[in-house]
Design a protein around this nucleic acid. Structure first.
Length: 460
RNA sequence: GCCCCUCUAGCUCAACUGGCAGAGCAACGGACUCUUAAUCCGCAGGUUCUGGGUUCGAAUCCCAGGGGGGGUACCA
């Protein structure tokens, strides 16, 4: 028989008076978290996925009373008995039948302090989850966040799809991929760094609104904000542009904040964060000028841009053009000072090989990044749909790769062929869902929102 | 990659200036019929991350290695 959840018991019976007993029998199951045996009467605290409830076990009533008292902290049990409230008002299940379901053979972490060592928490998440309330709550929240996101997008006629994790040509982002090998085909494959190019192929195919919640893989450093595999929401919306995407992002994030936190006025790590739409829109150039104090643009002589970079301890590489130099200056001087939420709009074309040329500013593209709580939360653009222009951009990337840029893109010929069949004007978006979860759970480390973060293997 | 910090019983933590490695919880034995981290009595528990070195003596100081954390670089 399936047990009732402790939360349900509480909901149904919490109103009864102290010292009274209902006529109803409940069956609950979970782990023994605490135990207080006092001679002929024992109490235990049972925890299940939904919460905790007390077990009330008088020797007269409880079968194999000795055995019940001998249960270890961490043991799983199923208990049936009348719902009652103790004299002190604690809702309890009287132990009239019980059964041990699983044994905890390893010693229980300190029942008061729990687990403090982050290493143990991440490596033995199965322990962390049942002794650290905040960890359990965070992952439940994350699950709900994913579910709400899907529902919200589906309500707007977006269709969820799944595209390959193995890519013959890594693409869709500027990042170093992991590579692997398929024996039967005798080919090298790359784990995707972004699903972007496949999703846009689907728009070519006529799916006008698609999204994927994609696990992506980037062979880069690990930090409080980076895990080598992480979850990205990407969506593509035919007939939309990056302005429409901005509205979508602020609405989606505000919606999640309202439902998960009850408000759009959040506090993240002690600092206020107001996610109420609309979020400010600022141009990249304007912000760069304001924060760096520099009067620079794409026509500024290269030597001058390089000098500004060098002054700021940026190690300049020879093949960098003005766009890349401006981006470096922005990342050094401007981005760290932004808290947000803010949409940073219009990036240099040189660093945005998949975004559409800006309608008014040559050399720039219609792209934005959403900065929220000082971090890049989303990256989006009006997609580049012109196959000739895309080919030129790919070739420029490939040339960068040839001179040693390991993160540059390769030419994806099939993607170019797809564009030749016609991609309508399309707005595209990528959101770092792990970072969004960090924000909504108010946790400082990406490992707090990834169940099994990447760690060096333990030698057991 | 680089820099800084850290590692003591199953868990949480002590151990002064280099001088007998300890406590609480958990476990184990016992007492206890309304507890809430129950309480009380008793008992047991150690490669002080590993390996070297300095020293009469090392958890403590030095060197090398390993795990972890933070920062930094790259990036979402």
């Amino acid at each position: 028989m399936n047990p009732q959840s402790t939360a349900e018991c509480r909901k149904l019976h919490d109103h009864i008076a102290a010292g009274t007993e209902t006529a109803q029998t409940a069956t609950v199951a979970g782990r023994i978290m605490l135990r207080r045996v006092q001679g002929k009467l024992a109490f235990a605290t049972l925890q299940d996925a939904a919460g905790r409830i007390q077990l009330f076990a008088p020797a007269k009533v409880t079968p194999d009373y000795e055995g019940f008292c001998a249960l270890s902290l961490g043991d799983w049990v199923r208990v049936s008995g009348l719902i009652m409230k103790t004299r002190t008002g604690e809702l309890s299940v009287k132990v009239q039948e019980w059964e041990q379901l699983a044994q905890a053979r390893r010693a229980f972490p300190d029942k008061w302090h729990g687990l403090a060592d982050p290493d143990t928490r991440f490596r033995q998440r199965y322990v962390d989850l049942w002794v650290t309330d905040k960890a359990r709550a965070t992952f439940q929240m994350r699950s709900e966040m994913m579910s709400l996101t899907r529902r919200w997008l589906e309500d707007r006629d977006f269709m969820e799809v799944e595209t390959p994790v193995f890519h013959p040509v890594p693409g869709g982002a500027l990042a170093e991929p992991f590579s692997t090998h398929h024996n039967a085909l005798g080919i090298d494959l790359f784990l995707r760094i972004a699903p972007e190019l496949y999703l846009k192929r689907l728009v070519v195919g006529g799916f006008e609104r698609v999204f994927e919640i994609a696990r992506v893989f980037r062979n880069e450093g690990i930090s409080t904000r980076h895990n080598p595999e992480f979850t990205m929401l990407e969506l593509y919306w035919a007939y939309a542009d990056y302005g429409d995407i901005m509205e979508l992002v602020e609405e989606l994030v505000a919606h999640l904040a309202r439902l998960l936190q009850g408000t759009t006025h959040l506090s993240y790590q002690g600092r206020e964060l107001d996610l109420t739409p609309p979020w400010p829109r600022r141009s990249f150039s304007e912000l760069l000028a304001a924060h760096s104090g520099l009067d620079v643009n794409l026509r500024t002589p290269l030597d001058e841009l390089r000098a500004h970079c060098t002054d700021r301890d940026i190690s300049v590489q020879n093949h960098w053009g003005p766009g890349k130099l401006l981006l470096e200056l922005y990342e050094k001087t401007t981005e760290p000072e932004l808290w947000g939420p803010v949409f940073v709009c219009d990036y240099p074309k040189e660093v945005s090989p998949l975004a559409k040329d800006h309608s008014e500013n040559p050399g720039w593209v219609e792209r934005f990044e959403a900065i929220v709580a000082g971090r890049e939360l989303a990256n989006a653009f009006s997609e580049l749909t012109d196959p000739d222009e895309q080919k030129a951009r790919f070739e420029h990337q490939a040339a960068q790769k040839d001179v040693g840029d390991t993160e540059a893109m390769s030419v994806d010929r099939d993607y170019l062929r797809a564009l030749e069949f016609g991609l309508p004007p399309t707005g595209g978006l990528g959101v770092g869902m792990d970072r969004l979860a960090m924000l909504l759970a108010d946790v400082p480390n990406i490992r707090d929102v990834i169940l099994f973060p990447t760690l060096r293997p333990e030698s057991l």
